[in-house]
């Protein structure tokens, strides 16, 4: 079900969307999605996981990161800091008891909640891939660019990468950020079976994988 939640932003409180399965049950899972393209590639998998969790008696909320998906906030105004503030606000608003962060979501999730991080990714690895996509696209267009110069430019002035206008703060933040997990359990792809859907160039789905993820969370949340 779609719901809205109040999210702090540079122009005050903005309404953001979340996909919510809420029946006021004791375990309430906040899901922090991956960043950039991986968010789109994993969306069907995550919502299928939410359906499965619902069937296993667990509430879940998948909020938009400000500037992403349905958000009306400006992407260029975002940083890892703004996403951390937003996810902390979502956790409070929905009274989350647990958290699941995927991939780059592990850079911005509320660390005070117990829970899980799925194949967490370093910020520098995310940035490297975005820079590489830009260098490749430039090469196809007959222009020479290189990652080192682009990174320097991005850290000082911001940069457009893969269709996203990244602020200087976001570039610098990604370059330095490592997954924040503190005692949350790391889930690996091999724990779920199947193939990693965030790699897929076109979004895919794998109900068996979503079911495995939901079962794992349900078992460990009640343990």
């Amino acid at each position: 079900m779609p719901a809205t939640w109040p999210c702090p932003g540079p122009s005050g409180i903005a309404d953001e969307y979340a996909v919510v399965f809420d029946r006021a049950r004791p375990v309430r899972l906040l899901i922090v999605p991956p960043l950039f393209e991986e968010m789109n590639r994993t969306r069907r998998m995550l919502i299928e996981t939410q359906c499965r969790l619902d069937g296993l008696g667990i509430d879940s909320m998948l909020p938009d990161l400000p500037g992403c998906n349905e958000s009306a906030q400006a992407f260029p105004a975002q940083s890892l800091g703004s996403w951390r503030d937003a996810m902390a606000a979502a956790a409070r608003h929905f009274a989350a008891t647990h958290v699941l962060a995927l991939r780059g979501g592990a850079l911005v999730f509320p660390t005070s909640l117990p829970g899980w991080v799925l194949e967490p990714q370093k910020g520098s690895a995310i940035l490297r891939q975005l820079l590489r996509a830009r260098v490749l696209a430039a090469k196809e267009a007959g222009r020479e660019e290189n990652s080192t110069d682009l990174l320097e430019q991005g850290r000082n002035h911001g940069l457009e990468l893969a269709g996203y206008r990244l602020s200087a703060a976001l570039v610098a933040g990604l370059d330095a950020a490592v997954p924040q997990d503190e005692g949350q359990r790391v889930i690996r792809q091999s724990d779920l079976g199947g193939r990693p859907l965030w790699l897929r160039s076109e979004p895919g789905e794998d109900p068996a994988q979503s079911a495995a993820l939901a079962r794992l969370i349900a078992a460990e949340a009640s343990a």
């Binding site: 891939q129 975005l130 590489r132 996509a133 696209a137 290189n146 990652s147 893969a162 790699l199 160039s201």
Partner: peptide, 24 residues
């Protein structure tokens, strides 16, 4: 280009090699 960038990053991880931009 985004898919190629992802592919190259995974190649580096899984095959334990480093690929320079100008090799692509």
């Amino acid at each position: 280009s985004m898919a190629v960038a992802g592919l190259l990053t995974e190649i580096e991880d899984r095959f334990d090699i480093v690929i320079d931009d100008d090799e692509v």
